[in-house]
Nucleic acid binder design. Structure first.
Lengths: 143, 143
DNA sequence: GCAGTCGTAACGACTATTGTTACGACTGAA
DNA sequence: TTCAGTCGTAACAATAGTCGTTACGACTGC
């Protein structure tokens, strides 16, 4: 399937909230964020719900409700965001179990799993290098 | 998405061909490989066609037809295989263009693209570390 | 109260992956 | 020269994941 855009949307949303708060507002609504992201507010709420459970964002309910960051942008890495949205595996093993009576069919699963674990570890190391503060800086410099 | 299993299947197929050739056979048929992978021969042929175009495998047609490796297992890395099967991106940007009148909406694309390029480079470096010879060694040791 | 927003379920459109059938193209061997 | 075995590829179906949308109850400041 197509790669998913959740990390992009989540980083966008959190960065937007961070900037909005720095400009003096207390909370941001899912509708405001959705306008910047150009999507439906429910998509934003769904994502922020996960980020909330992971302790990256918080919400206030009732009138004057909205979202706020739970930590400063500089204290949130893209790895934090990535883990929060429960990523699926980058590579999958066989859909149907390969023939266990064949030497290759029997041993290929563990062999590839070891490689894939290494790949995902490298991916996490790479995402951990960038904080949302870095992202915001790039965003503002581009303007 | 579901992650895709093409790299797994391709590595399995090439490793199988390599082992089969070492045991004295000239070519392997897609049906034999499919039996080990536990899938349909067409799936194997589709994949091997791409690996062939990338110069990793070759086929002989007609009677007594089948597939052979174009290089030794030790000379094929998982990165070679990965590139051969034309991988999609690991992460996607927004499906709909974000609001360009918003600072964040305008700058987030390039910012995330830079990060994602770094991630994919790390992924490629990691895959380049393992050759199919390594995979075969692991497979045989597991038996 | 009530208006505004969250939280979440339910559903549909769209797309990618994988399996399957089908069939023409090719070639070694009888 | 024919034929059997295999490749190469198109076409289609089943399945699953993503994303957008509607709907509605829950919560709370005014």
């Amino acid at each position: 399937m197509s790669a998913n855009s959740r990390l992009t949307i989540a980083a966008h949303a959190l960065t937007w909230i961070g900037l909005y708060q720095r400009r003096g507002h207390e909370v941001a609504t899912s509708e405001q964020i959705a306008t910047s992201v150009n999507t439906n507010p429910v998509v934003i709420r769904r994502l922020l719900a996960k980020l909330g459970k992971a302790g990256l964002a918080g919400s206030r309910r009732g009138a004057g409700a909205g979202w706020m960051l739970a930590r400063d942008l500089a204290a949130i890495t893209l790895l934090d965001v990535h883990q929060a949205i429960e990523p699926g595996p980058v590579f999958a093993l066989h859909r149907a179990t390969p023939n266990p009576e064949c030497v290759v069919g029997h041993g290929i699963g563990p062999a590839m799993t070891a490689v894939y674990d290494g790949v995902e570890a490298a991916l996490r190391r790479e995402l951990a290098k960038t904080t949302l503060e870095d992202v915001l800086r790039d965003v503002l410099q581009a303007a």
